[in-house]
Nucleic acid binder design. Sequence first.
DNA 1: CTTACATCGTTAGGATGCTAACTATGTAAT
DNA 2: ATTACATAGTTAGCATCCTAACGATGTAAG
Lengths: 150, 150
Amino acid sequence: MFFLRELPTRQMLLTYRDRFPDMNPQAVGEALRLLRRGSLLMRELEAYFSAHALSQTRFLTMILIDREPARDGLFPSEIADRLDISRPVVTDTIKSLERAGLLHSIRDISDRRAKKVRLTPDGRAALAAVLPGYFALIADFMDRSTDDAS
Amino acid sequence: MFFLRELPTRQMLLTYRDRFPDMNPQAVGEALRLLRRGSLLMRELEAYFSAHALSQTRFLTMILIDREPARDGLFPSEIADRLDISRPVVTDTIKSLERAGLLHSIRDISDRRAKKVRLTPDGRAALAAVLPGYFALIADFMDRSTDDAS
DNA sequence: CTTACATCGTTAGGATGCTAACTATGTAAT
DNA sequence: ATTACATAGTTAGCATCCTAACGATGTAAG
C-alpha cells in the first residue's frame, strides 16, 4: 500500500532533480499517481469485500475457479501461480473459504500429494451476490478518478 | 495487493456483462490494469527498500520530514495524516527508525502529550543514499510498462 | 530396488497494515 | 475548581502477506 495523501508538486519534483540530475520528474510523478490511485481503489475494494465477509484474495480465488468450469476444480498451486501469491497464503485462503462453506476440496486420485478445490453451490451464490456491487464500485471509482490529477 | 497474473480478456469481460448487464467492461478492464500495474511497482519498491533495511512507509516517513526543513520536526499525528495511515503504524515506524538511528524525537514543550520527530544526520544520509536507486527503479519500471497491455 | 532429487501442500515465524481501547494531557463549561 | 469531553501517542489483538523449512508423495538414475 502506498498512501501519500498529497503527492509532491511538479516544483518539488524539479527540486529533487536539482539534487539528483538523473531523476526523471515526469516518470516519478506518473508512478506516484499510479501508486496512489491503485492503493485507493484497493482500499475501497477491500472495504467492500470485508463487508461481505470476503477479501480480495478470497474473491479472486473463487473467480479463478468459477472461470474454468471445464476443469473439475483447481490445484492450490495453480491458484498460487495465477494469483501470483505464495502458497502458504493459498492454504490459509482455502481454509477460510472452506470454513465458510464456499469451497470444498478433494484429494486427487492420481497424485496423492495434490488436492482439487471446487466451489460449492453456496460459493457460486456468494460470487453472484457480490459481483454486481463489485462492478458498480469499480465503475464509480473510475468515474470519480478520471485522471484530473494529471 | 492485487496480483492476478493474467487479467481477463476482453472476451471474458463481455461474458460477464452478459450475466450482469450493468457492468462496464471498459472500466473494469482499466481498473484491473491499474491494480496490477500498481501492485507490481509496489512489489519492486518494497524489494528495493527491503534491500536497504527500509520499507515504503519508513522511507516516506523520512521523506515527509525531510521535505519540510522549515519545521523543526513533525508530529506523529501529522505523519499519519499525510501518509494516510493509522497512528499505531506511525508509532511502530518511528520506533524502528529510531532503533536504526535514523530518527530521534523530543517531547514537545508546550504540549506534553506530543512529540516532535526529526531526522538524524544518519537519517539524512540514508535518504540521500537511497534516492538515486529509487528514482532509477521508477524510471525503469515506467519505461518497461508503457501501457502496452492496453 | 534404492537412492537422490523434485514437487505438493502445510506449518512456523516475521513484517506490516488495521481497529478498539487505554493513559496522559489539554480544553472548555459550569 | 471540577467535571466532562477531546486529542496525542501507545498497547493489544487481528488480518494478510512473506520466506524457510518440513513431511509426504512422485520420478528418475543407477
